[in-house]
Design a protein around this nucleic acid. Structure first.
Lengths: 350, 350
DNA sequence: CTGAAAGCGCTTACAG
DNA sequence: CTGAAAGCGCTTACAG
């Protein structure tokens, strides 16, 4: 490797001072009282290009205070394949924006790990943070404002808004609504909601995942509009345990749909003839299971890009609005669509 | 946020110089010509603890030359859920070792993206790199030694060894062997290998994924020992197209097993009665599909830890051996085991 | 319009 | 056994 090129090298070759080079290369050549001639600007830029200059980020961080690193702290990663497109979207955007993505440990819902990771992000001087917060964080969002250098640079994903934090996510209420609505439109009159748990009507229960509450509200709105009866169960398989007139179910937990499909297969319940099922998006799983599952697409890759764009904008000092993406229904066999053929991807055989 | 604590603060409170504090806190208090009294060491450490000191990594990077950042460049992420436990393993270990994980864009097999990401890692001063290289990298491994500050700090994963790079992976030949062996032990006499492609016997074909070649060799060894006939097809579904006496198949491509199972379901082929199937590990998918698939476990989480440990050791100047993990066969329904019940995990409803 | 200088917080020879 | 000093490569007021 050739010796690293520094501002000094450019300054020498361009016959200007290091300060001038810094100003030019940082687009500050015409800010406020500073003004540098077009000629000089051009010359400096040309030399920098010739020398293939890249700033020493540590040095920049030390004087400017920005590390160009964005932290990512997810709640879960091992079992939810929806996180893959999410990460892909984030890295793709950050890379183009010149930031690094520092991936911390996943919290697995533990406030302790979360606190520790936020602390690490803070100590290491990350410019911003994309966080899939735990319940405790959301409940004590105010308090957490002290734990990161600038809480305004923390973007929450996949969660309800909390205490002025910028939040990006997918409309959870709408997930429940469009899933249920699809089933009602197919003519089903008794559509169940799978995902009930103690306290789903009660936001105060610390064990109530609020995303589920929102999906449940969407479900209620849809069956309300259709003037249908409410049936809720904890898990899809509960419907197979007892007699009932349910002909369709919306499995609001991402794992529940595939599990229910597997159970139906084991017990000879025909899908969608005996039971129509709508599940939550889970990357490829929805296509692998048979019958292929109709799902509510969670748009994870796009969410990743939106989250990344939000942090970088905030770090750059811009105003950022919350974003709420609209989920999309993807109809497949489990609600009666024709068979979908999925091609396997090849690559390097992982 | 309170003002950041620096070495200076500790020096003042402990009544020593900044240099002494640095020496003590870096375990260099007794290296070579330097020698600091036990008393001073203790005092400095106590004060540092009281003040909850954490070093400014940018400053350290600038004088010491280490950023404490390890880069990660994967080949694929969106569709292979085996990458999730891999990432989990890496982050978990790096976090404990005090390193950050900077996740770059995935290459999707593109040498251009790979080159660019290595370049970024180099420019940003990452201490080391975990790389799932493209075929081009492996072919021109020598040449790539110039592209990262110290090629010795680059650890290759999931790939055959190349040009002295430290490599960690899972024994691919053994995957093919144990999968095939399992089927033979069950009494099958015609076991097919699904994953044939032009050049699988020829390492020189640039399109031949070498992991597949190794799995194929394992297959050949197993059927050779059992004195059975070789049958190879490109994809598992090919077996359903024509008449043959194949009663068992090892699907060497991770996607192929689930796809074949789905196809069997569609065409009424009973698994494992008509056809026994062994697939490659794919996180949860193997448990969701029905019948649950017998797989060769790729031990991704452990691989992640091993890779992370390797890089950090190298960065710390230690010698590191290549690691080749042994794959494990996990028997499930698709080769005749009893039904396995899988509990869905709950968490925050992703 | 541009240069000289201070300072960010650390590490590492080099003196004592 | 420990301190003073230089230097890493940048940015940013402050002078001219």
């Amino acid at each position: 490797m050739a010796r690293t090129i520094t501002l000094k090298d450019i300054a020498r070759r361009a016959e200007v001072s290091v300060a001038t080079v810094s100003l030019v290369l940082n687009q500050k050549a015409s800010r406020g009282t500073v003004r540098i001639s077009e000629e000089t600007i051009e010359r400096v830029q040309r030399v920098a290009g010739e020398l293939d200059y890249f700033p020493n980020l540590s040095a920049r961080a030390m004087s400017g205070g920005k590390t160009s690193i964005i932290g990512l702290v997810l709640n879960e990663i091992k079992y939810s394949s929806a996180q893959l497109p999410l990460i892909y979207g984030i890295t793709d955007l950050l890379d183009h924006a010149g930031f690094s993505l520092a991936m911390g440990r996943v919290t697995l819902g533990s406030p302790d790990i979360e606190t520790e990771e936020i602390r690490i992000a803070n100590r290491k001087g990350f410019d911003g943070l994309i966080l899939e917060p735990t319940r405790v964080f959301l409940q004590e969002a105010e308090r957490f404002k002290d734990s990161f250098r600038d809480w305004r640079h923390v973007v929450l994903i996949n969660r309800p808004a909390a205490a002025d934090y910028t939040t990006v996510g997918v409309d959870q209420e709408k997930m429940g609504y469009i899933a249920t609505r699809h089933l009602l439109d197919l003519g089903h009159r008794t559509v169940a909601f799978a995902g009930r748990h103690p306290g789903i009507e009660d936001h105060d229960d610390p064990n109530a995942p609020s995303n589920m509450v929102a999906r449940y509200r969407g479900y209620l709105r849809a069956i309300g509009e259709a003037d249908c009866e409410e049936v809720t169960v904890a898990k899809g398989v509960d419907l197979l345990e007892s007699e009932n007139k349910v002909t369709a179910v919306y499995c609001a937990l991402s794992y529940d749909g595939p599990d229910l499909l597997a159970a139906c297969h084991d017990r000879g319940v025909r899908v969608p003839d005996d039971l129509a099922i709508v599940g939550q998006d889970e990357s490829r799983e929805k296509e692998i299971v048979r019958p292929a599952m109709t799902t509510v697409d969670m748009r994870s890759e796009e969410l990743g890009k939106v989250a990344a764009r939000a942090v970088t904008s905030l770090v750059d000092g811009a105003e950022v609005e919350d974003v709420l993406l609209k989920p999309e229904l993807v109809v497949r066999e489990s609600t009666g669509a024709r068979v979908v053929v999925v091609e396997g991807s090849g690559s390097f055989a992982n």
